[in-house]
Simulated assay, not measured.
Amino acid sequence: MQQVKAVIARSKGAPVEIVTINVPDPGPGEALVRVQACGVCHTDLHYREGGINDEFPFLLGHEAAGVIEAVGEGVTQVAPGDFVVLNWRAVCGECRACRRGEPQYCFATHNATQKMTLAEGEDAGTELSPALGIGAFAEKTLVAAGQCTKVDPEARPAAVGLLGCGVMAGIGAAINTGNVGRGMSVAVIGCGGVGAAAVAGAALAGAAKIIAVDLDDKKLAGATRLGATHTVNSSEQDAVEAIQALTDGNGADVVIDAVGRPETWKQAFYARDLAGTVVLVGVPTPDMTIPEIPLIDVFGRGGSLKSSWYGDCLPSRDFPVLVDLYRQGRLDLDAFVTEEIALGDVEAAFEKMHHGDVLRSVVLL
């Protein structure tokens, strides 16, 4: 058992706190990771606001990279000293998705069996709920060994740790879910962290035309740096009409909704070409419903309407490849790191998130 500093959300909407927590020694199938960097993601804010569930207190943080410090019995895929990116899709190998050869959809991903707990105060011993089974706003965290993907140790932790969630979600939405290929046209609606990553993924896949759509000119400029060939400020012009005008009146081959609202999903539906693909990677809230669209339009336009879970990634396959592309200078993961902060700055990072000032604040430990 070790005691380390960590950031928790104690109750719904309350400011986060730095506390001391107990981290057990790894048991069978588990790994203890010394965290080096962890991005501040919207999902962490959703946890704090009670938007995921009410299993407080939460140990926040999940977009992380670090070094394996110890492993439990039976762990062979990683060893102490390995540099790893953490993930929340530790495939089980046994569920119906895994059995049919689609582990990227694993429905029973593993987390650590043992619980980290509060170490001090009246509630000492209270079990913590780690965000996405990771909990990496902490000097050290305990995870299932399958949540650790070994990558090039020369890579910058602050950059490659972002593959643990948002950047992988966006890149995967383009490459894995949208099947973007050479010469295709792609539109991305919403150019925050995930949307900007979708732009980068489309560029990596060789798309000929990449149209970035947002309300914020700063985000559009960032999307251009990551590979967008055209930009549309949808506060000034109709997004659907603009996308169609840039694609000879046809619409894009793939349209990615990185916002996750009924109105943006409807824009994506009508901004695609016949037999085109819509990819929903922005996360809607439970109260949102699909907007009214005539069923004849669903039939008549053909194509695919897809949701992208975690960029439909398989971490063991995708993380090392993307880190290698980053090391070769072909994927600019550094562009997603807006600022590097300390554990005590997480609450301020949430506030900046509300104002759209950052792609990612990254906690360095």
Results as ranks from 00 to 15, higher is better:
Leu60Asp: 08
Asp152His: 07
Ala70Trp: 10
Glu139Ile: 02
His110Asp: 07
Val33Thr: 11
Gly51Asn: 14
Glu73Val: 00
Val35Leu: 04
Arg100Tyr: 00
Phe56Gly: 09
Ala90Val: 02
Glu154Phe: 11
Glu30Gly: 13
Lys115Phe: 04
Gly125Phe: 01
Phe107Arg: 14
Pro28Ala: 09
Gly135Asp: 02
Cys98His: 15
Ala124Asp: 01
Asp123Met: 02
Gly93Tyr: 01
Pro57Gly: 11
Gly39Ile: 03
Pro157Trp: 12
Gly125Thr: 06
Asp82Ala: 07
Thr141Asp: 01
Pro15Tyr: 06
Gly29Ser: 07
Pro130Tyr: 02
Val75Leu: 01
Gly51Thr: 04
Asp152Cys: 04
Phe137Ile: 03
Val23Ile: 11
Gly39Tyr: 12
Val19His: 07
His110Lys: 10
Glu94Ala: 08
Arg48Gln: 12
Glu94Asn: 13
Ala90His: 09
Gln147Thr: 06
Pro153Trp: 02
Asp44Arg: 14
Phe107Gln: 12
Cys38Gln: 07
Ala112Pro: 05
Ala145Leu: 02
Asp152Phe: 01
Pro57Glu: 06
Pro24Gln: 03
Val16Ser: 06
Asp152Pro: 07
Val16Gln: 10
Ser129Trp: 05
Asp54Phe: 13
Val78His: 12
Gln77Tyr: 11
Arg99Glu: 02
Pro153Ser: 07
His62Thr: 09
Ala31Met: 04
His62Ile: 08
Glu154Pro: 04
Ile68Gln: 04
Arg156Tyr: 14
Asn111Arg: 13
Leu132Thr: 07
Glu30Thr: 05
Thr126Gln: 09
Ala37Trp: 14
Pro103Asn: 11
Ala79Arg: 14
Cys98Gly: 12
His46Tyr: 14
Ala97Tyr: 13
Cys148Glu: 00
Ile134Asn: 08
Gly61Leu: 05
Ile68Leu: 07
His62Ala: 09
Leu60Glu: 14
Gly101His: 08
Ala131Trp: 05
Val91Cys: 09
Ile52Gln: 15
Ala31Ser: 10
Gly61Lys: 15
Val71Cys: 14
Arg89Val: 10
Ala131Cys: 08
Pro24Lys: 10
Gly29Lys: 13
Val78Asn: 10
Glu102Ile: 01
Phe137Gln: 02
Cys41Val: 09
Leu45Arg: 15
Ile21Gly: 12
Leu45Lys: 15
Thr141Ile: 00
